[in-house]
Amino acid sequence: MIDDMPAVPSLQAVRLSRSFGQGETRSTVLHDVSLKLYSGQITLLMGPSGSGKSTLLALLSGLLHPDAGRVVALGQDLWSMSDRERERFRLRHCGFIFQGYNLFNALTARQQLEMVARWGEGASASEARRRADEILMLLGMAKKAHLRPTELSGGEKQRVAIGRALIKDPNFCFADEPTSALDWKAGEQVVELLRSAAHDRGATVLIVAHDARIIEHVDRVIHMEDGQLIDHDDDYEPMLHKIKQEG
């Protein structure tokens, strides 16, 4: 997998800034942030509360408009697209996992996944079911496909949420505090699943989290403080990639 890693970043932030509020209450949350992320890699973005991690994630994933700077994803400038084009881009390329599981209470685990395939890509009922079952099996949830969120544990719910993000086989997977509501055993499983999405499926995975125990499971860790990246190498390229080229 690493052998196929492209030299160009799959997602690049160029001098991103973002403020909230107006007048005296205006506060700058992100200040001149540049970053490169590569496919097949799982990256952890760490930092204290209010450091701007989630805002950076929102900007990188096309959910929040930056005040200044550019986001280049798969060679396309996200924020020069129209809303409709950006929506289509997210539909084709982006998966999200949020802190709360945000699953529909009335739907089974299988239906939560099917819904994305059917509504997003117009997949037929049988095709959506086949793909949902395939992903649920990968996540170790095959036997619980018929259960609703109220019948699942926190870890299982988060696995369904991951399944919902992965059923589209996305190029990018953004996860905001995916382990914060879980015990470490369940949290570790969740991180491993995201790691597998990067290493086995070639996705660019970005996790925003506080939990330091995640560090040993990721390829790269970026620290953030007061809206800026700390000790960050703007010209970073994956080490293994360099080794291969040198070899």
């Binding site: 994933s61 959910l63 929506e87 289509r88 881009f89 997210r90 539909l91 084709r92 982006c94 998966g95 999200f96 949020f98 709360g100 945000n102 699953l103 529909f104 819904m115 994305v116 509504w119 997003g120 919902r164 993000a165 589209k168």
Partner: peptide
């Protein structure tokens, strides 16, 4: 009451008309 769930679908790029 389901706005957060719908918001996830919107994040995933599913159009509002759905």
């Amino acid at each position: 009451a389901s706005l957060r769930e719908y918001a996830v679908l919107r994040a995933l790029g599913i159009p509002r008309w759905r």
